[in-house]
Amino acid sequence: MRNSSAFLVSVVATLFALGLALLVDDGATRVAGLPLLPALALFGFAVQWLVFVPSFLRQTEHYYDLAGALTYASVILLAASLASPDVRGWVITALVLIWCGRLGSFLFLRVKRIGKDGRFDDLKPYWGRFLMAWTLQGLWVFVTLLAALIAVTSPASASWDVWATLGLLIWAGGFAIEAIADHQKNVFKAEPANHGRFIRQGLWAWSRHPNYFGEIMLWTGIAVMATPALTGWQWLGWVSPLFVCWLLVKVSGIPMLEQRADEKWGGQADYEAYKASTPVLVPRPPRRAAR
């Protein structure tokens, strides 16, 4: 992809986020003359672009995931500080901060340990392509946060209800699955005897991508919690977990990892047996080997 085409993708992604923000904004709060949600979307993109500049000059992707996590945190905190949310909104804010604190530090330490992220090998040398990656991360942040932002900035105060409790339980389950799966994989890779092998123990015996299942589950929990705050076009807030699911299942998550795994272990009997008996995403108790 040429720099000009990549830059055009960045423009379209930015305009899409701003259009979506305008569509769901309730108009109750303005920041510097802008409706609140479009202002938050622009702020998120601005953080990405600011970190892009030194990253491109130094030709490093080390701060990409960390910048994404910090953008999540700063956008949700800015929203809460400007909108004075109810109890539901503050709990959602805390949940987002807990999630991005754990995942952001995990991803940052991983790329520092490994030394590089192969996804960026063909992007870093070209300013347009590299800018596109950072802009798309800004889009990812805003769309993923959409349900949370609507709930946090909603002017209608609602008491804690069954939606809030159910959503919190779903979030807690998803967060636990994601954190446990990441920890199990870290421990597995830290063992020298496992070098060059694939993990198939713990939650990874139940699913080939249990961390992604947890990610989808926790954002679904956020959307469930936000449901009482949704009215009119704000029901588009449910695009948040759907977008996460689409991104991980169809775009940049499972397809890329499955391809890499097939290239490394494809044809090996144990790997082919693991693929045949283990679900791609939704966990299922491992089947007992036939006697």
Rank of each mutant, 00 (worst) to 15 (best):
M1A: 10
S5W: 04
F7E: 06
V11C: 14
T14C: 08
L15G: 12
G19F: 10
L20C: 06
L23G: 02
D26P: 01
A28V: 03
R30G: 01
R30C: 02
A32R: 08
A32K: 02
G33P: 11
L34F: 15
L36R: 03
L37I: 10
L37M: 10
P38T: 09
A39S: 12
L42T: 09
F43D: 08
A46R: 04
V47G: 04
L50N: 03
L50R: 05
V51Y: 10
V51N: 07
P54E: 13
P54N: 13
F56S: 12
L57M: 14
L57P: 00
L57S: 10
Q59S: 15
T60L: 07
T60K: 06
H62G: 11
Y64E: 04
L66W: 14
A69Y: 07
A69P: 06
T71E: 07
A73F: 14
L77C: 13
A79C: 15
A79K: 07
A79Q: 09
A83P: 05
S84F: 12
S84W: 10
P85C: 13
G89R: 07
V91K: 01
I92K: 00
L95T: 12
G104C: 10
L107D: 04
F108E: 00
F108I: 06
D117R: 04
G118W: 00
G118E: 13
K124C: 08
Y126W: 14
W127F: 15
G128Y: 09
L131R: 03
M132G: 05
T135A: 11
T135V: 15
G138C: 06
G138K: 01
V143P: 03
L145I: 03
L146K: 05
L146D: 06
A147W: 03
L149H: 08
S154W: 02
A156W: 01
S159T: 14
S159L: 12
A164P: 00
G167H: 08
L169K: 05
W171M: 03
G173C: 07
G173L: 09
G174C: 09
I177T: 15
E178F: 07
I180K: 10
H183G: 03
H183P: 00
F188A: 11
E191N: 15
H195W: 01
H195K: 14
G196D: 07
R200S: 15
L203N: 08
R208A: 03
R208N: 01
H209L: 00
Y212D: 03
F213W: 12
M217Y: 00
L218F: 05
A223P: 04
V224F: 11
M225A: 11
A229S: 15
L230A: 13
G232R: 06
V239S: 15
V244C: 05
C245Y: 14
L247T: 09
L247F: 13
L248A: 05
V249Y: 04
G253P: 04
M256E: 09
L257H: 00
R260F: 07
D262A: 15
D262E: 15
G266C: 05
G267T: 08
Q268L: 06
Q268W: 01
A269D: 11
Y271M: 08
Y274A: 09
A276W: 01
P279N: 02
V280L: 01
V280F: 02
V280E: 02
P286Q: 12
A290Y: 00
